[in-house]
Simulated assay, not measured.
Amino acid sequence: MNKVLKRILISVGIVIGVIALVLGGFIGYAYATDYRPDQETVLKVDQASQKETLNIGSEYTMITFNIGYGGLGEQQDFFMDGGSKSGADSLEEVNENLNAVQTYLTQTDPDFAFLQEVDLSGKRSFNVNQYEILRESMRFGSFAYNYKVKYVPVPFTNPQGGVESGIVTLSKAEPYEATRYSFDGQEMAIQQLFDLKRAFTISRFKIDGSDKELVLINAHFSAFDKGGKVRKQQVKQMQTVLETESKHGNYIILGGDFNHELPGTSADNFAWTEAIPSWVMQLPLDFAPKGYNWAVDPQNPTVRAVEAAYVDGYTYKAVIDGFLVSDNIEILHVEGQGTMNFKNSDHNPVQLHFKLK
């Protein structure tokens, strides 16, 4: 072996060794700082300046809204859905989107609100604490992490960086208990280090003059799991939760981002010509246990594909956000806010009007 070839091989070996060392060190750092929540975590309930009581026979409103961390407005795409971006382009963009969400909450003034993809900090949202902005002083609130990573290295051309995000439940009445529950199912070990730790929360409210509770379940199911293998585990877990709560005779509302097309809805109700995204799945028709009813609006889309900026008539749309309620709750009206047309998030909110029987 001549000296030149030997030097080349040594140099290549050094380069490979350095790359392996750096990569190993980074994975080690990710593992050491990995967020590993317990199966159950009691949440802090942030207090409001005043509180309302809940009563049988009274009417209430609630909304569910995946706000897309203030970074998935109509001009954005997302790398996990085939796009190239990982966050908002500017702080002004984040603030504009959050202002629109805040205006919607103020105008609708719901008694309860489920929010998903709410950032505490993160490069993708320019480190804006969205929970503090959206939780008005009059509302009780709880925040549960479902994404807490020191550094997400993808997409490689513009890494997402650090993220602290989660799901939020707001209310005018005070919950006496709020708990985060880890969803079953995980991705492969290395991928899971940089992925969401999916969760749902249960907030419990006392009802004046009743020994039963109002149980609100705010859920954000998985997406982008190949073949839906993780979602299948989450669906089974949630069915067990619903069956257990109904045995106690409680008033139960499950809502949020199901990341499945919901029963009684069809994407064919909307105008689009784009290819159906690979993550799209239908929620099994037998998901809802006996004694539950769907509260969804099949005429208004709640999610769009984010492979590219939104184009009305082209971009894929479907209904994956809504509510499932126990039959001791009367569904008065449910309406998807399709007129918002994905201007400030890749989701449109859904509003439910109901009465405790």
Results as ranks from 00 to 15, higher is better:
K3F: 15
L9Q: 09
S11G: 15
V12K: 04
I14T: 03
I14G: 01
I19Y: 00
A20P: 06
L23P: 01
Y31W: 10
D34I: 09
R36M: 06
D38T: 06
S49N: 14
K51L: 13
E52D: 09
T53S: 15
N55P: 09
G57M: 13
Y60W: 09
I67V: 14
G68R: 02
G68C: 10
G70Q: 01
G71K: 01
L72P: 00
D89K: 15
V94N: 03
V94I: 14
N95Y: 06
N97I: 05
L98D: 00
A100K: 03
Q102Y: 12
T108C: 09
F112D: 02
Q116Y: 10
Q116F: 11
V118S: 01
S125Q: 03
V128C: 04
M138A: 11
Y147K: 07
Y151N: 12
Y151E: 04
P153A: 06
P153M: 06
N158Y: 03
Q160R: 15
G162F: 13
S165N: 10
G166L: 12
P175L: 08
T179W: 07
R180P: 09
M188R: 14
A189K: 09
Q192T: 08
L196I: 13
R198C: 09
R204S: 02
F205R: 02
S222I: 12
A223N: 14
V241A: 07
F258R: 00
N259L: 14
G264L: 10
A267R: 05
D268R: 15
F270A: 04
W272G: 06
I276D: 03
Q282H: 13
K290A: 14
N293W: 08
P298R: 00
N300V: 09
T302P: 09
V306S: 06
V306T: 12
V319K: 01
I320S: 11
G322S: 03
S326E: 01
N328R: 07
N328I: 07
N328H: 05
E335W: 08
G336T: 02
M340A: 09
N341Y: 01
S345F: 11
H347N: 00
N348D: 08
L352T: 02
